[in-house]
Design a protein around this nucleic acid. Sequence first.
RNA 1: GGCGGUGUAGCUCAGUUGGUUAGAGCAGCGGAAUCAUAAUCCGCGUGUCCGGGGUUCGAGUCCCUGCACCGCCA
Length: 572
Amino acid sequence: MARTLITSALPYINGIKHLGNLVGSQLPADLYARYRRARGDEVLFLCATDEHGTPAEIAAQKAGKPVAEYCAELHEVQAEIAAGFRLSFDHFGRSSSEQNKILTQHLATKLAESGLIEVIEETQVYSVTDGRFLPDRYIEGTCPNCGYDSARGDQCDNCTKQLDPTDLINPHSTISGATDLETRATKHLYLKQSNMRGALSEWIESKTDWPVLTTSIAKKWLNDGDGLQDRGITRDLSWGVPVQYDGAPWTGMDGKVFYVWFDAPIEYIACGAEWAAKQGFDDAAWERWWRTDKGADDVRYVQFMGKDNVPFHTLSFPVTMLGSNEPWKMVDYIKSFNYLNYDGGQFSTSRGRGVFMDQALSILPPDYWRWWLLSHAPESSDSEFTWENFQSSVNKDLADVLGNFVSRITKFCRSKFGEEVPAGGDYGDQERALIADLTEKVADYQSHMDAIDVRKGANALRAIWVAGNEYLQSAAPWSTFKEDPELAAMQVRMGLNLIGLYARLSSPFIPDTSGKLHTALALDTLDWPEDVAACLSSLTPGHTFVVPDNLFAKISDEDREDWQEKFAGTRS
RNA sequence: GGCGGUGUAGCUCAGUUGGUUAGAGCAGCGGAAUCAUAAUCCGCGUGUCCGGGGUUCGAGUCCCUGCACCGCCA
């Protein structure tokens, strides 16, 4: 049995993500996971919250809660919303887990043994009032260049001049407003990524089948300017994986933690360990996915992420994996996405612009969102969400093409033959032609799904739905019924079987709807229709069903205008 | 400032290694049908493929350049 390991970029803990974040990683990852499972693969689909770092500490502080408690709560919130979108993670873990701590410390040790860690002393701004070192962007003051009074420590937003925090006039902490800032010397561990440049370059060059978006970003970082830079992997914080521990190959790192970008990707692996522990399995259960010396050789590992995450997945994390000199399973394919814009601008978490995951679910069921987002996934370039487009796509594709198809055939059957598959007649030329056409269309659909071409997959699926309406329109059982009820019965039987086919093929995109059809038609299975002809004969005369409620209500102009207004401004 | 991306029908987007009259969905127009959520099906597109140069027998597709928008980096 083929085995597929799938990970989605980890959503950061400090709040609810917007639809742009969702469509860039978790949702397409789920689509692919569902598809691979349907095709019979053994799948392990992992995701987790990314919980460490300064933003989490500050968010917790604002909420007036200990950071651990804050993260635990937000993790539950995110998990619940993920479930709301039907994201089928085998495990939704936490980067703050014990497993991740152990693994992060282990890998840091291995990297040190490989000579890839060095200790560097540098100066950073310390806020006495806040009791912490401040990242550059949390320091503001007057720009020495243009006089703008809210220039950040890394850059002036007004004149765009790049700054050093110590350049600022009258600097203060944006966390507390404190002005008692001082520069202090502090030591940090650096990961010598530059030493691995050759190995990384070779590895990336070998990935000729990757999307250009992925490889162009990777190569740019690898080759531009002075090439790949070494990066600090520790920070002076309390919330995170401790850098100093028993057996650490360095000293003097007390009170420091690993920088979030270092431990977050390691959570992909640790998440597997969390999953195994939760299932009551032993280590071998997750190691067969993650260690090539323990059975992961035949695993195909696919990662999903937005383009902003590509450097970490093509360079930093691989440095950790390769540099450890241990046989970790490396990623086989990286599917990356561009950005989804919102109505002429960007989605903005800070300004609350756009639709956030919880809000989306509060106004419509998940399948509406899944369908629109996936059929408009920003694959080749940034794409745009507008309410008009959302309304027309959803109404047309889901309500009219698919929903109405189910409605018209089941209701016609009920009125003429009752709620059971009618007997009589045999499939003829027209049906054989339809089967041949659908067999071809399903193969086309599968080829796009195999290639993880999300939009093309959606288009192909839609074409399959359309084929049912074309058939029904030309077979016209409502006409043939008058002269030849047996013929009409056979045509209706085909129509009902088409619903069964659609329920199976559509499940990766719109799982709830597939479930409804499964129940209404009393299908014995939602297995993939490897044999289209057989699938279209699987509902036999006498099989009873129930006419389902309309699958999709249409979005009215009033709703659309309402939402347009509601989500334009600031998140309430 | 450096780098990268994008710019194709009213809208959202496809267009593989350059090759016949540039495509899909939606919207619009005309028709058929009336089983169905006025839902479906059929037919209809002369679009300076952002502008300007160039390479080529031939360019949306390669090169140079200008413009616009968007990112990333320093």
